[in-house]
């Protein structure tokens, strides 16, 4: 008997994460570890963890990981990449981290076209702190701070931060994906691979937004959570390529 799915080299062996059953963070962690192995980037990899449920990711990944203050991931990533361009720098962030407290860092690092890769886990709530409304919560979504559903007159509208930064010239690659089915997970891996390759090729900022289940705070089973992503969340956040300026950037670099 031969094992088909070998344990990823850059994921600590036999890890038991603190994530809730069915949480999307675990799926995306596996994808990152697999890609670093497949792309042979593990030795120079440097991942910035967020404040949020992924705060303990340094216990799970088996390569260099640093912790950031809430929302400051891309500022740290900028410093690391500029000081040591040979590093392969990833900023891993939730939606509360990236699109609320970290909005300034997100906007300006993207606008500067920093040569870093951002993995953005959008679960439409503040997971770690108990399911409060996030800028990304969808209209009508019930959270602990919007128990009657998000009301645009009081709470404003869902923030499409990845669409915003995709418009910037410095953002070479942006895609939105989900982890709500095996087929979607394969697409997610492909998108993150493209984002990583963008950095390897020195073409500028890349970001992949992953619509990801938080069954605990959504008060759904993991299976219901996947259905909610596919039936409700994608209506607000349409998956697909948001920008691909890699060829343009390649031409700029050549002249």
């Amino acid at each position: 008997m031969e094992l088909i799915n070998n344990w990823p080299k850059y994921y600590k062996k036999d890890v038991v994460t603190h994530y809730c059953p069915g949480c999307g963070h675990g799926i995306v962690h596996r994808i990152i570890a697999e890609l670093l192995e497949e792309m042979d980037l593990g030795k120079q990899a440097y991942l910035v963890c967020p404040a949020g449920c992924a705060v303990l990711a340094y216990h799970y990944f088996d390569f260099d990981v640093i912790e950031s203050a809430h929302g400051r991931g891309t500022a740290i990533a900028t410093g690391a990449k500029r000081a040591k361009p040979e590093l392969f720098v990833i900023s891993y962030q939730g939606d509360g981290d990236l699109s609320a407290i970290g909005t300034a860092e997100t906007i300006h690092s993207a606008n500067r076209g920093e040569n870093i890769s951002v993995v953005f886990i959008n679960n439409a709530v503040y997971g770690m702190t108990g399911g409060q409304m996030a800028p990304t919560s969808i209209l009508g979504q019930s959270t602990t701070t919007s128990p009657d559903g998000r009301n645009p007159e009081v709470d404003g509208y869902p923030l499409h931060i990845t669409d915003v930064v995709a418009n910037f010239p410095g953002v070479a690659y942006a895609e939105r994906v989900t982890v709500a089915s095996p087929a979607a997970i394969k697409k997610t891996k492909k998108a993150i691979r493209n984002a990583f390759q963008t950095q390897v090729d020195g073409l500028g900022y890349s970001i992949v937004e992953v619509l990801s289940p938080c069954p605990t705070n959504w008060k759904m089973t993991p299976v219901q959570s996947c259905k909610w992503i596919e039936e409700e969340m994608v209506k607000e956040y349409k998956p697909g390529l948001l920008t691909d300026k890699r060829e343009e950037r390649r031409k700029d670099r050549a002249c």
């Binding site: 799915n5 949480c23 596996r30």
Partner: peptide, 20 residues
Amino acid sequence: IGCMMCTQVCPDLAIEVYSG
């Protein structure tokens, strides 16, 4: 049938599929 759908979706790497 070894399609690996289960290993794709498992957030906890708890499944092993062997050929043979």
